[in-house]
């Protein structure tokens, strides 16, 4: 298991960074404490199926910080951060994204994450995030609920940012839909278009005490909720995938849940 990281331009003057350390995130006491690696930063333009190298970064000390505003990304455009061996030759262009290396020094369990931080003026919010390589090989579907939508303060804006990375070779760029629906009636409220290797973004409209859900019948992805106002408040968190609602038979549970929801939507 290994993981990509990502940067995204979500618009609204919000800047995104990813912090990584070469200290091994979780290890047995006697295992190696550091791992040497570098990162490649790649993007795919909205109308292209080719990955283009934006950057190649090595550690100077134990930490590195990569920032979205360094790469002139359009709103919804992703930059994928790939941890790789220091002597790995990163090409200028790829049809298929290289597999990220594992940053473990033994078999201790850990998701190989970065600190994904969003900034708006002086306020900031972060979470420990990644995009698993295994997820980048599957097309899948997506369903999430509204636990992180803030109801109580009408002056707060919330947007869902739906990160979709597909590392295999693409023959064409398809247009997909990220949808917002009423959880009770299953009626669609709004939707937003996205393509492979980009972020779908919906500014969640004001709503009165209705339960919402988010879905895509086209691809899987990671949903990030960003809530903010102009007074210095910013909060970012990602949702658990539906499989985390289950202890025994996680994936059967997730499959049943999606079977009960997705056919109900338009």
């Amino acid at each position: 298991m290994s993981d990509y990281m990502f940067l995204v331009n979500v618009g609204g003057g919000i800047v995104n960074s990813a912090s990584l350390t070469r200290l091994v995130p979780n290890r047995r006491k006697n295992s190696c404490a550091k791992i040497n690696f570098k990162v490649g930063v790649y993007t795919q333009e909205f109308d292209s199926v080719q990955w283009k190298k934006l950057d190649e970064i090595r550690f100077i000390d134990n930490n590195m910080v990569i920032t979205s505003s360094d790469y002139n990304l359009e709103v919804g455009q992703l930059a994928v951060v790939i941890p790789c061996e220091v002597d790995f030759l990163l090409l200028g262009k790829y049809d298929e994204l290289p597999e990220p290396i594992s940053r473990k020094s033994d078999i201790s369990l850990v998701n190989e994450r970065a600190s994904i931080t969003f900034y708006k003026d002086k306020s900031f919010s972060s979470y420990q995030g990644e995009f698993p390589y295994q997820m980048s090989l599957i097309k899948g579907t997506f369903l999430a609920f509204d636990s992180l939508v803030q109801y109580t303060n009408k002056n707060i804006n919330t947007k869902i940012v739906f990160i979709n990375i597909h590392s295999k070779k693409l023959l064409e760029k398809q247009v997909f839909h990220l949808n917002l629906a009423n959880s009770d009636s299953k009626e669609k409220i709004t939707s937003s278009k996205y393509v492979h290797n980009s972020a779908g973004i919906i500014d969640i409209p004001a709503h009165d005490d209705i339960e919402l859900c988010f879905y895509s019948k086209d691809t899987l992805g990671i949903p990030i909720f960003i809530s903010y106002n102009n007074l210095g408040y910013l909060s970012v968190e990602h949702l658990h995938p539906p499989s985390e609602l289950f202890w025994n038979n996680k994936f059967k549970g997730q499959q049943l849940l999606k079977q009960n929801w997705l056919p109900e939507f338009p």
Partner: peptide, 11 residues
């Protein structure tokens, strides 16, 4: 289990 060292990706 045995002793583990955890290091968050945090500066």
């Amino acid at each position: 289990r045995g002793k583990h060292i955890y290091t968050p990706q945090l500066i």
